[in-house]
């Protein structure tokens, strides 16, 4: 038996993916089964004896099994934590809703995780009088020039309403359009402004 190969595969999957690979339910179940098998082997070998009764060669095998078990656990938690970190990061980038195309990569539990994080983050920012998710980049200019990548309808600014049709460019207050840029509906044009 090749200990830890399954859990390694899970981590390699993460590494090869741009954002997150689809949640690997089978892989996780496989690792859990391996952990259980290792544990059974351990308890069988131990057979209720105390360590002093066990001959040294058996002790070695116990250590190997125990370490393999711990390693599997660690890899599995790393897999979940890495995913959880990406998911919570997503809340900062795209706001309180998971974009449609990313939803299929998440398990039902991970969607729950996202919603829970959304709730505790909202809890944190409430009453703070400061929108932490805005101003992710240091401001350079008061206005930015943006190109509309897909129709956003009309937005209200201080100087009246602006209709954002696809393909048009506008010079607007950064604070008015920042959230749209982050959602990828607008593109910021650099160094082309007046």
């Amino acid at each position: 038996m090749n200990f830890g190969a399954k859990s390694k595969d899970l981590l390699v999957e993460l590494k090869r993916s741009d954002w997150l690979p689809p949640y690997n339910e089978d892989g996780v179940r496989g690792v859990l089964a391996e952990i259980q098998a290792l544990y059974d082997e351990l308890t069988d070998t131990l057979g209720g004896r105390t360590t002093s009764d066990i001959p040294d060669p058996v002790k070695v095998s116990l250590v190997v099994h125990h370490q393999a078990l711990l390693r599997n656990k660690r890899c599995l938690l790393t897999y979940l934590k890495w995913r959880a970190d990406r998911i919570t990061q997503l809340r900062w980038e795209t706001g309180p809703v998971v974009p449609q195309e990313l939803q299929q990569s998440l398990s039902a539990r991970e969607m729950e995780l996202f919603n829970t994080y959304d709730r505790i983050l909202t809890n944190f920012t409430q009453g703070l009088n400061l929108d932490l998710t805005a101003d992710l980049q240091p401001p350079k200019e008061l206005h930015v020039e943006v190109r509309v990548l897909s129709d956003c309808g009309e937005i209200m600014t201080d100087h009246g309403s602006v209709k954002l049709d696809r393909g048009t460019t506008h010079l607007l207050r950064r604070s008015d359009v920042e959230h749209l840029v982050r959602q990828g509906l607008l593109q910021e044009l650099e160094n082309e402004s007046t």
């Binding site: 996780v28 690792v31 859990l32 952990i35 259980q36 544990y39 078990l69 711990l70 656990k73 599995l76 938690l77 979940l80 934590k81 959880a84 398990s107 539990r109 991970e110 729950e112 995780l113 829970t116």
Partner: peptide, 17 residues
């Protein structure tokens, strides 16, 4: 996180792990 980990995998591990 604890809730997430427990429900996804820790609850299916041997109890002392």
């Amino acid at each position: 996180l604890e809730d997430h980990f427990t429900r996804t995998c820790l609850s299916q591990m041997p109890s002392n792990f």
